[in-house]
């Protein structure tokens, strides 16, 4: 009697494998491995330009919205559409943005504009955007921006369903007028402003966060600094700007961190 499949201790021995089938198996494995490694290598070495898509020129330009860091005379404006609760935005803010600020913004090469794009999948991103807008009311948007990303895991939708007390604590830590901030947050004073930013992002057909508009191209994802800089260089070259971003040749423009918001 043959053993019941799945219950017996040993199975029927399978038909003996031929040398040929083993050879084909290893050949197939080798083909997949070579194709896979080749494809990954090719994709990772594509120049940064190839993954930027052009901005639809028929769409209205993004002007005088959001929050700006950098010199008003910088030859290039980079626009970030971001979501405070998005982990990839946090990754960009933590890993790439410090270099962007010190090497590009502080040196007057670019200025950066943040536009809120709170995604519906993130439970606490709207309160976070409102809190940042309330901080901006007191001239401290970027301090709140940084504090929100540094503490994202403590107030995100997985950590709490009521993040406002945490935001109020952050406001105290970055030196905001507590009463003014609390009132702003509690009354959702900045709701319309954040909604306007969201509509702007939708109008630009932004599909993911973070997304950047760099010289007429939309770039998605938390790009590492080298790629980001190469996109900036390319945009500057196309605009005919004489500014060099490499090494020490960066212009010694005054570091004027202007902030404006409307």
């Amino acid at each position: 009697m043959s053993p019941t499949p799945g219950k017996g201790k040993r199975r029927q021995p399978p038909p003996r494998r031929t040398k040929n089938s083993t050879r084909i198996f290893y050949l197939a494995l080798a083909v997949i491995a070579v194709a896979g490694v080749g494809a990954l290598t090719w994709m990772s070495r594509r120049p940064a330009e190839t993954f930027a898509s052009p901005v639809d020129s028929t769409l209205p330009k993004v002007q005088s919205n959001g929050y700006v860091m950098g010199s008003a005379t910088a030859p290039l404006e980079v626009i970030e559409f971001g979501d405070f609760e998005c982990p990839s935005c946090e990754r960009f803010a933590s890993l790439t943005e410090p270099d962007v600020r010190s090497r590009l913004i502080d040196k007057g090469v670019i200025r950066m504009r943040w536009i809120d794009f709170p995604l519906s999948m993130h439970r606490n991103t709207w309160p976070a955007s409102r809190a940042a807008a309330c901080a901006d009311e007191q001239g401290k948007f970027w301090q709140m921006h940084d504090a929100l990303f540094q503490t994202q895991d403590q107030w995100n939708g997985e950590a709490t369903s009521n993040p406002n007390p945490f935001f109020k604590k952050l406001a105290g830590q970055i030196g905001l007028n507590q009463q003014q901030f609390d009132q702003c947050v509690d009354t959702k004073k900045m709701q319309a402003k954040v909604q306007a930013h969201e509509q702007l992002a939708i109008g630009q057909r932004i599909q993911a966060t973070p997304s950047f508009i760099i010289g007429g191209k939309i770039v998605e994802g938390p790009r590492p600094y080298d790629e980001f800089k190469s996109l900036v260089d390319s945009a500057l070259a196309k605009s005919g700007s004489p500014i060099a971003t490499a090494g020490t040749k960066a212009p010694a423009k005054p570091t004027t961190k202007t902030r404006s918001s409307r």
Binding site: L40, P87, S88, N156, A208, E220, G221, R223
Partner: peptide
């Protein structure tokens, strides 16, 4: 590995067709 490298920022736009891949990969 392809999706991991994208997520870590080593590969540009995902070859996806609809753009929903980015939405999923960049979600929380």
């Amino acid at each position: 590995l392809y999706l991991t490298l994208y997520k870590l920022g080593y590969i540009g736009t995902l070859v996806c067709g609809t753009g929903a891949c980015e939405t999923v990969q960049l979600s929380r």
